[in-house]
Nucleic acid binder design. Structure first.
Length: 261
DNA sequence: TCCTATGTTGTCAT
DNA sequence: AATGACAACATAGG
């Protein structure tokens, strides 16, 4: 599910609920999401989360004892803070119980997400070949990473080593607003178009965060706003938004407004 | 029943 | 070294 804006919401939610709370207990309901790190997670009992950060779709949390936890959410992950006397939410895979009587569930329905600890964030980031976060990366870093690639622009935008945090919906949204068809080859785009992609990427991320990543609250001219279950009209020309497959991902674009380069 | 899904990773072939 | 096609992961909803 989550792309950068939604993960940023998870991070803020985590900060509001879990920081500074002594951890009483850590339960692993399903070891799969811990990727062999069950002991590292249960060892967080007695510690406290003190500071969080985000890099692309990943959240990192420092603890008082100097540990670092990471969380990635896959397609169906989120966090839920709840009263410990209540039942854990469905698909809760790891549960942190705090001394204050509340618990945080790391929920992952399809178990594509991963949670664990890292010795240092830099190592994790280089291990995953993550580029700078999409809201931090400079125009030069971004366009340099794109330039020279021989793929279509949509596939490249989804590549986390180009900019960390762009997901399937935002890639489509960026290309929709720059009027570039997702199948366009990078080599056919000029520098003005590359700059436009960079600016739109930042703008869309910021707007999505402003509306707290609530899809229906996006501006009327955003195609992501309308979801993907029914046929939608292009907010610009009213033609039907086409659905195709690009790089193995469902892709939405306006064949009239977006040109193939 | 069949298809799809806001993600990532590994394999195999080019 | 890059790129692409595709499967795998696990579950629900249309």
């Amino acid at each position: 599910m989550p792309e950068l804006p939604e993960v940023e919401m998870f991070r803020r939610y985590f900060d509001e609920t879990c920081l500074q709370q002594p951890i009483r207990d850590v339960q692993i309901a399903h070891p799969k999401v811990a990727g062999g790190q069950e002991k590292n997670l249960t060892a967080l009992a007695g510690d406290q989360f003190i500071k969080s950060s985000r890099w692309g779709k990943n959240i990192f949390v420092q603890t008082r004892k100097g540990k670092s936890m990471f969380m990635h959410f896959g397609m169906t992950g989120y966090l839920e803070y709840y009263n410990s006397t209540l039942e854990a939410p469905k698909y809760a895979r790891v549960v942190f119980a705090f001394n204050n009587g509340f618990s945080l569930a790391y929920v992952s329905k399809r178990m594509f997400g991963r949670i664990g600890t890292v010795t240092d964030i830099e190592h994790y980031v280089s291990d995953k070949s993550l580029a700078e976060d999409a809201l931090i990366i400079s125009r030069e870093q971004f366009t340099n990473a794109l330039a020279g690639k021989k793929k279509n622009i949509k596939t490249a935008l989804l590549d986390q080593s180009v900019a960390a945090g762009i997901g399937n919906w935002i890639a489509d949204e960026i290309l929709y607003h720059t009027r570039i068809h997702p199948t366009s080859q990078i080599g056919n785009l000029n520098s003005r178009q590359m700059d436009a992609i960079y600016e739109k990427m930042r703008e869309i991320m910021q707007v999505a965060i402003e509306v707290e990543a609530v899809r229906e609250d996006l501006p009327l001219h955003y195609i992501t706003r309308y979801g993907r279950k029914t046929s939608i009209a292009c907010p610009n020309c009213k033609n039907t938004i086409e659905r195709t497959e690009v790089g193995g991902r469902g892709t939405y674009a306006c064949g009239n407004c977006q040109e193939v380069y």
